[in-house]
Design a protein around this nucleic acid. Structure first.
Lengths: 217, 217
DNA sequence: CGACACCCTAGGGTTTTATCCTATCTGCTC
DNA sequence: GAGCAGATAGGATAAAACCCTAGGGTGTCG
């Protein structure tokens, strides 16, 4: 049987190396590449076509949820497992809405990681038992499926909003995305228009409110 | 030569297992026990007398810093390395003050972990290069030993920082304060200089971190 | 299938802001 | 009273944002 091929995505090199080492102990699963952030992840998915992407949520340049949206859309053959420390309903919801096939807590025991990777590789959905309850609640209509204000933005707009909130100027963003400054300015203008927020400070606060970036460094 | 004996402490089982797996690859170092929280760590230190405790900061029952204080006090033969995702001065400071022998970032490359564990086992202090600067600054009296980074700004600077973070342009701030735009720009420049933050987004995140403004509207 | 909406792209030209360097006045400290 | 830090602000220059316009691609809906 073929080995399940994994792409690891986390901006913490030490966490990444540790996970890689742990996964190496699992028979039938191997790490074929590692990415330091969302943009790198996209490139590596295209290059390696892994079976499963295991990603953290908060990352520079392109966060895990946005990366997930893009990956599942552009690469139907690849599924994503989000690895998070948050048990909050909102994160689980956002991850599943972004198209993740699995949501795994960092508090999970190691065998759960193995099980999760194997399950999603077979097309199943895997949720850490600790958070399954919430999803079931929503399924039963007991909890709210509130709409995410980020949904009113296009993927490109969300991406650029995050980069703005991280402190990059349009010029730099253009470099990072390999696009013209003018293009970036267009997206910037349109997202400001949609959100009806017309200053950088407001954008940063909005981005923080909705989990696109963290106030921490 | 004897192997360096490690106690791993982290409430994220997956992180713990991963680190254990990574450390197992290092020759001369072995994990002798794992704890899920601070209290368990104390008990296991007493039981196993490890050479080094590698601990996360945020944990239930007893956080990493408090656990560190107790461990170094009650077990002089054991040293502690704090593993953190925060580069903030305040965390580094608190960790060192608690008696940690090392402060390692999760963004560090794997070999840094090995080096850190070996260094502290020999009685040395290990700091991730990325945060050493801060400690040296404090040593040289260049930075404040105070808890609140806002103290390094003058009242006028804090006032203007808040207005910037609220989304006002220099022009508007000048109006609000009844001063010249040039004056506002001077203060803005000097506060950016002091904080070493040179973009509005960074200022907003800083202001939010320190409670000057809220991300909410 | 064509009309239409929406997205991503990007150029030209203008205006607004930020930045760099400099300078005066005040109050406090050694 | 010399020195220093804070508050004030001007001039010149560089950078960034803003306004307007527009083509190519994709998808949807009568």
């Amino acid at each position: 049987m073929e080995k399940i091929r994994i792409l690891l995505v986390d901006d913490h090199a030490l966490v990444r190396a540790s996970l890689k080492s742990l996964i190496a102990e699992f028979s039938g699963i191997e790490v074929v590449a590692e990415a330091n952030d969302g943009l790198e992840a996209l490139a590596l998915v295209a290059k390696h076509k892994p079976d499963v992407v295991l990603t953290d949520i908060s990352m520079p340049t392109l966060n895990g949820l946005e990366a997930t949206r893009r990956i599942v859309k552009e690469h139907p053959g690849t599924v994503v497992v989000v690895l998070s420390m948050h048990t909050d309903e909102k994160w689980v919801q956002q991850a599943m809405r972004a198209g993740a096939s699995g949501y795994l807590l960092k508090t999970s025991p190691p065998h759960e990681l193995k099980l999760a990777l194997e399950s999603v590789a077979q097309g199943q959905i895997f949720l850490s038992p600790a958070i399954s309850k919430q999803v079931v609640d929503v399924y039963l209509g007991r909890a709210s499926g509130k709409d995410d204000p980020l949904d009113q933005l296009t993927p490109r707009q969300r991406e650029i909003l995050q980069l703005i909130a991280e402190g990059h100027a349009s010029k730099r963003i253009a470099q990072l995305l390999g696009a013209s400054v003018k293009t970036v300015e267009s997206h910037r203008a349109s997202l400001m228009d949609r959100l009806d927020i017309h200053d950088v400070a407001g954008l940063v606060r909005f981005a923080i409110r909705h989990g696109l970036v963290s106030p921490e460094e």
